[in-house]
């Protein structure tokens, strides 16, 4: 159900700084309060995002419930050789959502 979409430039040159846009379909459930107290429930949101290029980490984000539904992240990578961008989203239920994209030269 949940899925990751990644957008990268079609072509890159060695030494280019490319912009990667990653989006995951996720509800990012928020905390509900009743009479000012949190309602007991396990909230399901993405708490960690990891992005790597050819296995080398580029970005790691710690996210909270205060990130919008269907979270979107855009970041840059300096590419020196062709390779694969991998973005992994971890949610608090222990599920992971992975997306990959190839960078061609």
């Amino acid at each position: 159900m949940s899925q990751v979409r990644i957008r990268v430039p079609e072509k890159a040159k060695a030494g280019d700084v490319i912009t990667v846009r990653a989006l995951v379909t996720h509800p990012m459930e928020v905390m509900q309060t009743r009479d000012g107290k949190p309602v007991e429930k396990n909230y399901n949101f993405i708490h960690k995002v990891e992005a790597s290029y050819n296995g080398k980490p580029v970005l790691e984000a710690e996210t909270t419930q205060a990130v919008s539904q269907n979270p979107f992240f855009s970041f840059t990578i300096k590419v020196n050789e062709p390779g694969k961008v991998r973005v992994i989203f971890h949610d608090t239920e222990g599920k992971t959502y992975t997306g990959e994209a190839d960078i061609k030269f």
Binding site: V30, L59, F75, I77
Partner: peptide, 12 residues
């Protein structure tokens, strides 16, 4: 390795 600082996201 990011090369440049340019990030974007959506917050609540």
């Amino acid at each position: 390795d990011a090369g440049k600082l340019s990030i974007a996201t959506n917050i609540r």
